[in-house]
């Protein structure tokens, strides 16, 4: 119970901290962000050039949107409300659609890709690491180890560049043109379009994740388990190898690896956003890129606050699942 409480407080603190930092930056900024934005907005729409009243209305709207009106406390609370509800008004880039609408349209793409590739990478990497530890010293294991050490420190998005260069330009297996998604979601074209869109971004998350990150950490944990008394006892009992791998090795690796996943979720997520962008994948990453380049502050704020809240909540859920699985750390 105390653990849940602590973790919940931590979740709130995390989100508040990220939010407060942003708020303070907005406040402390020597330049007038709203002026900037109004200029942008007018440039995009080409409207309201001669109408000072309309310009004033726009100023008012943005001042309110960014909580720059009223007392400091009002400003803080108002902005916090928008931060939590992603209510950042209308996007400059895609007027008159609201930020929330655009994001909710793109979100499923991102969550599908991420959930899919992170889970696959995690499972694959852990199993491979554990198996490699059983064949420690063999050529295969040494090769995998060398690959892992190379992949481990490289961020996804740098790896993604290599993949793009290889498979979209040098050996053109995939096209980087934005994918047209057919209306009928049960058709073959739909599946092939999804495949086209997803394969490279998924690979560039799965390969370094499975073969680098999770492989290395799982192998290190597995090597430790091999020297544990309980593993030795299991072997001496003559239990089947698969059982040893599953219940003695993987189950004990899984626990710390879930914590590791929760700790690194933020990093994985951030990297994956950039990967999406590189591959023209119709998710949040690409949207973020467009928003940043168009100076669409409301949209950027929306995407970023969603990411922060989303990742924090996901890590929170993982951390609550963890004690359910590890009998040693039941809620104290």
């Amino acid at each position: 119970m105390r653990y849940i409480l602590y973790r919940t407080l931590l979740l709130i603190a995390t989100i508040l901290m990220a939010f407060t930092l942003t708020f303070l930056m907005l406040k402390a900024l020597p330049v007038d962000i709203v002026k900037n934005m109004v200029a942008r907005s007018m440039a995009v729409t080409g409207a309201a050039l001669g109408d000072p009243e309309a310009v004033q209305r726009m100023y008012d709207m943005y001042y309110e949107l960014f909580g720059l009106k009223g007392s400091l406390l009002e400003q803080y609370l108002g902005f916090l409300r928008r931060f939590l509800t992603l209510d950042f008004g209308i996007s400059i880039l895609a007027r008159p659609t609201t930020v929330r609408e655009i994001i909710s349209y793109r979100l499923p793409w991102t969550t599908t890709l991420l959930a899919f590739s992170i889970v696959i990478a995690w499972i694959l990497g852990n199993i491979m690491g554990a198996i490699a530890s059983l064949f420690e010293g063999s050529k295969m294991s040494k090769t995998l180890q060398a690959i892992a050490v190379t992949l481990y420190p490289i961020p996804y998005y740098v790896f993604a560049i290599v993949l793009t260069y290889l498979f979209a330009y040098i050996i053109p297996l995939f096209s980087l043109a934005p994918v047209r998604i057919p209306e009928n979601i049960f058709s073959l074209e739909f599946l092939s379009a999804i495949f086209q869109a997803m394969t490279l971004p998924a690979l560039s998350i799965i390969i370094p994740g499975a073969l680098g990150w999770w492989f290395l950490s799982s192998r290190a944990l597995a090597l430790n388990i091999l020297s544990e008394d309980y593993y030795y006892y299991g072997e001496i009992q003559g239990l089947p190898k698969r059982l040893l791998l599953r219940k003695y090795m993987l189950k004990n690796i899984m626990m710390p690896q879930i914590t590791a996943l929760s700790l690194n979720l933020g990093g994985i997520f951030g990297g994956a956003l950039l990967t999406e962008m590189l591959f023209n994948y119709p998710g949040l990453g690409q949207l973020l890129y467009q928003a940043v380049n168009a100076g669409d502050y409301p949209l950027v704020l929306g995407i970023v606050s969603l990411s922060i809240i989303g990742v924090a909540v996901a890590a929170y859920i993982l951390d609550l699942i963890y004690p359910l699985m590890d009998p040693r750390v039941r809620y104290g």
Partner: peptide, 21 residues
């Protein structure tokens, strides 16, 4: 004292050894 798999219930220890042999 410390050779039992920490993530396995006691009954599974018995069941697995019996199933194996």
């Amino acid at each position: 004292m410390n050779v039992l798999n920490p993530t396995m219930r006691i009954k599974d220890n018995f069941v697995e050894i019996m199933r194996a042999h």
